[in-house]
Amino acid sequence: MNWTWFHKWGSPKWFFQKTEALVLWFGFLCLILLVVGTVWGLAFAPEDIKQGNSFRIFYIHVPSAILAQSIFMAMAISAVVGLVWRMKLAHIFVQVAAPIGASITLLALVTGAIWGKPTWGTWWVWDARLTSTLIQFFIYLGIISLYQSIENRDTAYKATAIACLVGIVNLPIIKFSVNWWKTLHQPATFKLTEAPSMAAEMWVPGLIMLVGFYLFFAFAVLVRMRSEVLEREKRTAWVREYLEKKNVL
């Protein structure tokens, strides 16, 4: 099998030049999808029979919750790539994805709480999913603070990658234990969504939002990665050329 496509990702210069147009495309597409999804979800989708219009929070809560988990998975995979193949870009990805992941997780938590008020009558319920999302948010914060407090950059990259892997190994255990704790303390009384009986006109905007969220993550992560690559490689000739082209120098 030909692995050159993979090895090319080891070159920061190659990455920087290839993603220049890609970033704009991601940004453009996610803008369209998020605007369409939001307008559709807010103004055109029908209301839920039981929950009324508060159901419209679904269109940001669920995509953000799904994305928050995907980001963690992506970080863990990237951490493996960084540790095994010593690929700098993979380490940079882990480092820049963490704050985005934390913000998306926070969004999922806050919108969940806001949704909870009209649906359950309280802002916060120690529901299994909410609780494990909260703990996932704490893990994100731990990883970010670890990266920020180690001064040597390469050590910080490695330590963050290891912390990510430890997190991903523990995440299923945490989720299971929280679920189990919930069933022990009180029977499950709330179901957030009645997924199977949802009409197409209700879930289609949700799907659009989900794709929009993923593209937004891709966009945000690429913008951040490009900055970090620039910072790392600022002493090289190609960065100089780039600066001249941008009229910065």
Binding site: N53, T111, F216, S227
Partner: peptide, 27 residues
Amino acid sequence: MGGHGTFVWMAYACFLMVIIWNLISPV
């Protein structure tokens, strides 16, 4: 929003804030 306006708009405001933060801090 049929009486749920506060909650729906609050949630979408948070959404907007997260998006804006994710745009400003990379810039």
